[in-house]
Design a protein around this nucleic acid. Sequence first.
DNA 1: GATACATGTGTAATCGATTAACTACTGCTC
DNA 2: GAGCAGTAGTTAATCGATTACACATGTATC
Lengths: 321, 321
Amino acid sequence: MKDVAQHAGVSTATVSRVLNGHAAPTPETRERVLAAIEELGYRPNALARSLRTTSTQTLGLVISDLLNPFFAEIARAVEDEARSHGYCVVIGNADESAEQEATYVRTLLDRRVDGLLLCPATDDPSLVREVSAGGVPVVLLDRTVRGATCPVVRADGSEALTALARRLVGAGHTRIGVIAGPPNTSTGRERTDVLVGSLGGLAQVVHGDFRQESGSQAAARLLDDGATALVAMDNLMGLGALGEVRARGLQIPHEIAFAVFDDQPWFPLLDPPITVIAQPTVEMGRAAARSLLALIDGRQPDDVRLTAKLVLRGSLGEAEL
Amino acid sequence: MKDVAQHAGVSTATVSRVLNGHAAPTPETRERVLAAIEELGYRPNALARSLRTTSTQTLGLVISDLLNPFFAEIARAVEDEARSHGYCVVIGNADESAEQEATYVRTLLDRRVDGLLLCPATDDPSLVREVSAGGVPVVLLDRTVRGATCPVVRADGSEALTALARRLVGAGHTRIGVIAGPPNTSTGRERTDVLVGSLGGLAQVVHGDFRQESGSQAAARLLDDGATALVAMDNLMGLGALGEVRARGLQIPHEIAFAVFDDQPWFPLLDPPITVIAQPTVEMGRAAARSLLALIDGRQPDDVRLTAKLVLRGSLGEAEL
DNA sequence: GATACATGTGTAATCGATTAACTACTGCTC
DNA sequence: GAGCAGTAGTTAATCGATTACACATGTATC
């Protein structure tokens, strides 16, 4: 910057003013400065700028698992929205581990992100409190924590789940296997509660950890117990469960009805196509980013609650008639 | 930091030494400083530190599309490897657009990432040159550019592709539809060249853009032209092509043989399971991160060329016998 | 011609760390 | 006890930007 100033025959203050579009400099001076910048190929040091302004134009996003397409889609949407507002996104992978999540959150705070989007690994509120206490805006995404005091963006699957339950019961299923998420996550608990509640005693629940491997194990257990329908509470566990179903040579939907929470582009390609509860991932990501930007901007955004929809495709058999 | 120093009755220099594990401070002083840090809940400002040390402990990763599970896996692996070396990763989504890629690269450079991993959108070397000229270490990942002078990490699919070609030809296919990647990417060109070359005139090529939509369009065109086998050159185009095949009610493998470059966890679940050429994504990501770290460290890593493998699953029909 | 006011630019403090150069103290040797 | 070495800690410069304040110049007003 000093070089540029010298080259243009002005002070660094003036260069800075040109760079930041302040009203002051003469068109003529401005021209000279811009020429010098061009000539020297100067690019401002974002670190120095941030140190001075205490704004990094960066959002932190800590998600549970980038390999989960659900989160990848969200990350993508967050990134898109953030970029359109001139913000960058630093993504942290918590790997469904609370410690790793905490580590990442602290690293991001150390780097002075302007705000944080968090998909909490557990519903323990202490980490969120810590961040809020530090004065950094936080928005929770997909999952919430106990007694959260920050904005939350999530999808509500209650309606879709009760509709699903109604159909399963209506079709005469009496042993319905539910492959649930971890009970210490809000989504894990809530989805299961709603579904099990509306199945009125016909449900058998096995908890997984939102990962493929746990899905196949849970499915194995439930099938052994004679389940005639399986509902997986996220796409990765669904993937695992499907593998187990295939491995046993069971025919969907005749021998086993099947549904998954989360849609994926390949579910329609299976034979039969898989019935799902689709979450509006892109809207979730965008909404979360917008809420966070609002918070950074000093406004108080409302919680956002989008609706997940039941998409019938055939894997429930007569329950879809 | 000043507060901590005051609290512990020492100077900021001493605090800094304690923080950075320098030899100087007495165990006793160290103890006092640590106590003060603890008590005040002090966390060092990474920006200030980076400004002073010119090292951010951050890698930039610019990929073509986070929604493509292939890149998501790579991103995940990069992130893992980087973290284990104390580095963070900032991910940029280029969306297969050269401009957006350039924008992102510049943003990352402005933020003074210590190094850059790039999956170039086109094989134009100018952006890479620009970065190298700026003295920032770069490693290319998955794709290369013309006359690249930086380390490249990629998967070699030649063997797998010729094996695939041999089988298709051997099974008597004479109109083999190839859904190719964009000709201005190295992977798009090379894969196609190898496959078409070893199909000896039996290939019909339609170029897509590594995305689902282009895959279905290309498939439609090729099927209209009477193709009896389809090979998609990446998983998203494969997804699109599969959709088109299903939409037409064509049976795999009897009516149409099908294979895809890139494996995905759900390919084995289709009926029949899809034959693929699997790339070692995790190893690619890790290797790329390692190469970049080596480069940052002043060493000169070799190019890495991993091998993609043909995985036969049944979607080629008699070509697999 | 003096006063006031607007305008454009420069000077220097500042953000929060690191670190070279210096000072102060301790203890050892002869 | 002078001289020296070694250790512990301090002072102050520095990284590269932003910005409050000061200053100089030009214009309008009386």
